[in-house]
């Protein structure tokens, strides 16, 4: 299990775009992942309200979902997004860190299914929720 987590952490930390967005992997294990993204002026999508662009939230949720897939006990060796649907409940409050929590709740031989939620510092109402499916590559012993 520790090896899976170490490998998954390595996979996530090697993502150039995750660095560009300032993402920080705070929790990982057993098919669930939590990633934080601090507020930055570069990510503003609406200069009037100074709210972070939905696209940056999507990128965070996609990364957290991929991380959840990678640390699933089925131990995928690689993953890629097949599809992702995101519902935006409300604007994230400007200045606050956004946190995405993803759970990989089922895997088949080829596909992993994920639910993901993004919140800011007010955790009572999510900023966005999403569901995704991911293609996975598995090690040989699982492929049989």
């Amino acid at each position: 299990m520790t090896d899976i987590i170490a490998l998954a952490r390595q996979f996530i930390e090697a993502i150039p775009h995750a660095h560009a967005l300032g993402m920080d992997l705070t929790d990982l294990g057993d098919g669930s992942a939590t990633i934080r993204m601090p507020y930055s002026d570069r990510l503003i999508g609406d200069p009037v309200s100074r709210v972070v662009h939905g696209g940056a939230v999507s990128a965070l949720m996609d990364t957290a979902s991929g991380a959840a897939v990678m640390c699933h006990p089925a131990a995928p060796t690689s993953t890629a997004t097949l599809d992702l649907r995101i519902d935006y409940m409300r604007a994230a409050t400007p200045g606050q860190t956004i946190t995405a929590r993803a759970i990989c709740y089922h895997v088949t031989r080829t596909v992993a299914f994920v639910r993901v939620t993004a919140t800011d510092e007010d955790e009572s109402v999510p900023v966005a929720t999403g569901t995704g499916s991911f293609s996975i590559e598995r090690s040989k012993e699982w492929a049989r």
Binding site: I15, P16, H17, A59, M61, D62, T63, S78, A80, L84
Partner: peptide, 14 residues
């Protein structure tokens, strides 16, 4: 900086 998987390499899905 738009790369998601440096092994392939592929653009980040996000």
């Amino acid at each position: 900086s738009n790369i998601g998987n440096p092994m392939i390499p592929a653009l980040h899905g996000g």
